[in-house]
Each structure stands twice: as C-alpha cells, then as structure tokens.
Amino acid sequence: MNPESEFLQRDPAAHPPAFTPIYKTSVLRSPRLPLWSLQNSLSEMTGPVFAQGELGALDNDLVRNHAQDGGAPIGERIIVHGRVLDGGARPVPGVLVEFWQANAAGRYRHRNDRFEAPIDPNFGGCGRVLTDAEGRWHFRTIKPGPYPYRNRVNDWRPAHIHFSVFGAGFAQRLVTQMYFEGDPLIPHDSIIATIPDPAARERLVARLDLGASVPLHTLAYRWDIVLRGRRSTLFENKLQGN
C-alpha cells in the first residue's frame, strides 16, 4: 500500500447533489440514503491504464474521423484544448479523455435522438485523446448546436461537449460537460443549474482562445479539467511510518 496514492476526499460542494428536482430525471434516479464513505484501498487508488497504440490516428479530429469520401461536416470549426490537472495543480499525464457531442444543428448521431434537425453525413460526434507529459490534450471539431429536450416545456441545452476523464485511479473517474463562453442559454439551463455554486458552474465554461486559433482557418476554445487531488507530501509517509 502506497499512502501517497490516496486521494483527498471529494468536496461535495464542488458537485451537483444527486437529487435536483429542476432536472426531473434525477428525482427517481438519486439514492435516498447517504453514501458510505470509504477510506481508499487499492480498489480505489488504481484504475485502468491506456496506451497511445490503442487509439486511431484520427481519434482526436472530429472534422475527419467520420467524414465520407471527400466530404466534411458543416459548422464552425474549432480546436478545443486544455490540460488535466489534479487538485495539487500537478499535470495528470497519460490519461484518457473522451468526448461526444451533437452536430452543428444540435442533432446527435444516436438511434434514440428524434430531434428533427438533420444528421450530418460527415459528422460522427465522438473522439478521444491521451494527455501528454504535461497533461495537455486537444482535439478539432465542429461547435455543437443547442437542442431542445423534454424537461420543462421549453428547455434547451446550451451548446456543450460531454467529457469523460480517467485519472490515475478509479476514484478520480469523472464525467462532465463543457460549455462555451458567452452562450446566453447557460443561465437558463436546468442541468448546469443542478450545481448550486455559481463559481463551480463557471468552471465548466470554456474560454475563447484566440492565441490558440489558426488564422484564416480555425477558432479555439480552452478548458482545463481538474481531478481530485491526492496526498503527496513527504511528511505523510513519515507520519505513517514509511
């Protein structure tokens, strides 16, 4: 057992609670009993490890990874990039970041999506990337459109990209959504509103990053992801007799 691998406890104030009636589906899908808190064992401190060779060459280019012969998706081309850091502000290298999204019209390539906006024949809407040695990741895509969904009678999701992030241990596993700076739908959204703290909501909003854009070609947005911190200090080891 390796005490420096233990994760700091999750701050519930950083997250939406399970039961959030504004988002109706959560009402019947939220546990009523408290979670049992576990001190980390190997089962929580470890997690799957992925290798570059498991990914395809186009996996982080949604403009090309589902394009038919000679075709390209319609929409605003953007680069999305950032870093994965832990709570100690250290980069988290070599972890898998996956993402999925609707097309420019707000339609998902999913058998259950019945929104009448059309499928883009050249857009799949998913990708993945491993963070580099500094915890950096990037991908190219089309900016997704908003779409309506059945919650309140006239609820629309802001433009967003879903993210799934693996850390160094399974306890860091996180699924979240990234929003876009300046989107007027954000303050009306029932799902981002499940997060009580406005400062926490703000952390899900990517910033326009002209510095990372490609002139005459592609705009860029930047968004950093922070996973749970872990014990790291030397005195922790000594205190525990290592």
Binding site: R10, D11, A14, H15, P16, Y23, T25, S26, G56, D59, N65, H66, L85, D86, G87, G88, A89, E98, F99, W100, Y108, R109, H110, R111, N112, D113, G124, G125, C126, R128, H162, S164, L174, V175, T176, Q177, I191, I192, T194, I195, A200, R201, R203, L204, I225, V226, L227, R228, G229
Partner: peptide, 28 residues
C-alpha cells in the same frame, strides 16, 4: 489547491462517445 471540475450527468446519449456501436454507428 484547485477545486475539482464539477460533475454533470452523462445524459441520454452517453453511448455516442463511450460505446458508439450501441448508439448505432461504427467509428473507432
């Protein structure tokens, strides 16, 4: 310390990103 990125629901279309075959298409 940096605060953890807040979680959000995976939503109804989680399959697209993580198990696209179940969403109804082949990509990876």
């Amino acid at each position: 310390y940096l605060p953890e990125t807040p979680s959000q629901t995976a939503g109804p279309y989680v399959h697209i990103g993580l198990i696209p075959r179940q969403a109804g298409f082949e990509i990876f």
